[in-house]
């Protein structure tokens, strides 16, 4: 891999990566809380878990919307090929995101058992399915998908469900559940807090098993990534950083520094996305079996003028967004307190 010189295309590759990493880090814990939702039967505990993500889940989902928008804007060919090629998968993703969103909003509005149970199941199922589908989509981009000479997807829906992408999907579910349990532990107290810490430890074990399997599968069965790693041994340092971040979580828990455990988990997600990004670069969609048809940051991009204007918008906007995102997390810091506005 040549060291890339910093042109607009590379910057936007990185910025789209930052947006999707932000999404994974933030909505990741929402989705994880959703996946864990049915593990407690107690209505009060379920409400506390919902309200732990209450003020922020909506803003977290905006990272996906903006990431999708940035992809459309910066790399319209990738957006068009992937979204039309993964048609059914994305429709299922949309359906699960919708169910999940309205379940959060609706569940506590009525006291009936059947009402709450229905929305609880929607919330959990929607969260698990969204995480799985996002993972499967990423897995397919890593593995490579068939692209024809026009740059269009040339495969089928069932062709997307190969073992490797499915493995990445399951790993993503495990990762988000771990992340969600840690976030939940940070936001709760008492009995539920201890329960979430216990779940977090189980999720860490599950995730490590998935991560090791994925790494082995990648090195054995995904030759273009294996070759990339062989040529660039320094990539191991990112993988190492990832494992250290994971290993640090139980340690922080032991010292009762829950929010540092959460930061560690964020670090694990960032390093994973970084690894993914570095392995993809400069491809956005790797074409398999014919790598010559891959969609890269050059053949799939918007004009330099558009990338330039968007960069100006991003430079003005991102500091403002970060400033108030951080302030809002600061205002809502600490353990969940229920009041009349709660879900």
């Amino acid at each position: 891999m040549n060291v890339p010189h910093l042109d607009l295309n590379t910057i936007w590759f990185a910025l789209v990566g930052v947006l999707f990493t932000g999404y994974a880090m933030l909505d990741g814990f929402d989705l994880g809380i959703g996946a864990l939702h049915l593990f407690t039967k107690d209505d009060a505990e379920r409400r506390v878990m919902l309200n732990a993500i209450g003020p922020v889940w909506d803003g977290n989902e905006v990272w996906l919307v903006t990431g999708g928008g940035a992809l459309f804007a910066a790399f319209p060919n990738v957006y068009a090929t992937v979204f039309s090629g993964f048609y059914l998968a994305f429709m299922l993703l949309l359906a699960s995101l919708i169910f999940r969103a309205v379940a959060i909003e609706f569940r506590s509005k009525q006291p009936m058992y059947w009402w709450r149970q229905t929305w609880d199941i929607s919330f959990a199922a929607g969260s698990v399915l969204s995480s799985l589908l996002i993972g499967v989509a990423l897995g397919n981009l890593a593995w490579g998908i068939p692209i024809d000479e026009r740059g269009e997807f040339a495969g089928s829906f069932l062709g997307l469900l190969k073992p490797y992408p499915l493995l990445i999907g399951i790993t993503t579910v495990a990762l988000f559940m771990m992340h969600g349990a840690i976030y939940g532990a940070m936001k709760t107290e008492g009995h539920l807090h201890h329960k979430l810490r216990r779940w977090a430890m189980n999720c860490i074990i599950a995730f490590v098993i998935c991560a090791v399997t994925t790494t082995m599968a990648t090195l054995l069965y995904v030759p273009h990534i294996a070759a990339r790693v062989r040529e660039n041994p320094w990539l191991f340092s990112i993988a190492l950083a990832n494992m250290l971040a994971i290993a640090n979580i139980p340690r922080e828990f032991h010292y009762r520094r829950d929010w540092l455990a959460f930061l560690s988990s964020c670090g694990a997600i960032i390093t994973l996305m970084l690894l993914f990004g570095v392995n993809q670069f400069p491809n956005l969609v790797y074409s398999q079996p014919d790598p010559a048809h891959s969609l890269t940051i050059y053949n799939a991009a918007s004009s330099q003028k558009t990338l330039g204007i968007m960069l100006i918008i991003a430079i003005i906007g991102i500091p403002i967004v970060l400033a108030y995102t951080v302030s809002i997390y600061w205002i809502f810091r600490g353990k969940v307190k229920m009041d009349r506005m709660s879900y």
Binding site: V65, T66, G69, A73, A74, P76, T306, M310, Y324
Partner: peptide, 17 residues
């Protein structure tokens, strides 16, 4: 895509967030 790019970027960053 190229034409909508800037408008979409502005919408995401200035409006949705």
């Amino acid at each position: 895509g190229d034409v909508f790019g800037s408008a979409l970027a502005a919408e995401g960053i200035f409006a949705f967030f």
